[in-house]
């Protein structure tokens, strides 16, 4: 049980996103909005991304973060939110699949 009653500010994605915003950076926020089957991160989990591709937090066990970062940079440019869906990994999409066998939906939006 690693639960503290205080926020872990140094690792908290939403605190980091606010800090980036104060530094004048462009930021995207990705949120797990739905999961099916065994998903590594619960609904509500965040990955925050800046325009250079720096990121904090997670939306999976590291399986799809690369793809989300790429899409997030697109979202920062366009300002248009995207809904991404990731399913079971197969041969054609192994780089962006979930090897755990679950499926997740990730909402990616620009901050501001």
């Amino acid at each position: 049980m690693e639960n503290s009653i205080y926020l872990d500010e140094a690792r908290d994605p939403l605190i980091i996103a606010e800090g980036w915003m104060k530094d004048g950076k462009d930021v995207a926020i990705a949120t797990v909005v739905e999961t099916w089957g065994s998903a590594p991160r619960p609904v509500g989990s965040h990955l925050v991304i800046d325009a250079e591709g720096n990121f904090h937090g997670s939306v999976s066990g590291g399986c799809v973060e690369g793809a989300v970062v790429t899409e997030a940079i697109d979202v920062i440019d366009s300002g248009k939110a995207k809904m991404l869906e990731f399913g079971v990994a197969d041969e054609t999409a192994w780089q962006v699949g979930l090897s755990c066998g679950g499926r997740i939906k990730v909402y990616v939006e620009r901050l501001g």
Binding site: I5, L14, E18, M21, L111, G112
Partner: peptide, 17 residues
């Protein structure tokens, strides 16, 4: 996400509300 919403949310979370 609205920057003001993010600031408000973080303030609430820091205050344990």
């Amino acid at each position: 996400m609205d920057p003001y919403a993010l600031k408000t949310l973080n303030a609430e979370r820091r205050a344990r509300r």
